[in-house]
Amino acid sequence: MKTGMLAFIIRRALQAIGVLLTVGIIAFAMFRFAGDPVNQIVSLDTPAAEREQVRLSLGLDDPVPVQFARYLFRAAQGDFGVSYQFRQPVSDLLAERVPATMELALCATIFATVFGVLMGVYSGLKRDSILAKVFQTVSLVGISLPTFLIGILLIYLFSVTLGWLPSYGRGDTVRIGWWTTGFLTLSGWTALIMPSITLGLFQMTLIMRIVRAEMLEVLRTDYIKFARARGLTTRAIHFGHALKNTLVPVITIVGLQFGSVIAFAIITETVFQWPGMGLLFVQAVQNVDIPIMAAYLMLVALIFVVINLAVDILYTVVDPRLRTTIRQPA
């Protein structure tokens, strides 16, 4: 079993490398697509000889494949070049911003999963109750309202009108090594509440709807009927037998959505001026800061690939039937 799992992970890792290479090509192509990089580095009155000097020093006279190989080689070591606007290494800029986005995405996902599963199970089990119908209606709102609108509404209500929660920023953060965290201060937590809800609301309604549909599906199966015929308690049937069978699709959604949550944090971060990667990316787009955009692209691709792999491994933990398929690949 161990070797089968290892082979599976290696196979998936090779696929992941393929995906990252492709994204690397796209990211690299951006540099050339957006015009001559030299023009973006030098000022307007730089003499031609000096421009040539810059071109040579950056290796821009080498053939394109060589440049691409060099870009990938450096990217693999975490070197994404220097930001045009900040004149700082892109990797340092990203590292500074990663904790803010990760903590926000984590809180949003936990919020979405906990409430999504609870509401989904409830409306699956008591689908005719009034509360279940309220959940269904609210979830429709959550799915149809755009993120920025929800964020602005929350700010209007809780920051402007009631004055309970801060409307922007992360609050006070504590530095642990290179990571800055908002989890250790009260203002950090209060600053997290509204952005997390804004970012997680869509996922929450999605998870709720999927859990509800899966619960209804599973409750109709023969093994649930048989479990009832064996006289098991309602509690054991609902939460032991039914809920566990709804988990596979939930893991898929939570996993894949976690990537989206990170990627689409852009809007939430803009609304709440959250100092994360998304905000950095928006600034980069406004200033045509290609190195940041390219690095962000590759980072998001990496996150997606890692999450997908983790989701596949998690499946086998939940569903024993998949362990056999992995052990004996068809």
Binding site: A229, N245, R321
Partner: peptide
Amino acid sequence: RRVRGKRIGMIFQDPLTSLNPL
């Protein structure tokens, strides 16, 4: 519920789907 499974046992048609796969 206490009668089911204790005093009356049941067997269903399809053994492939009667058992919880997980």
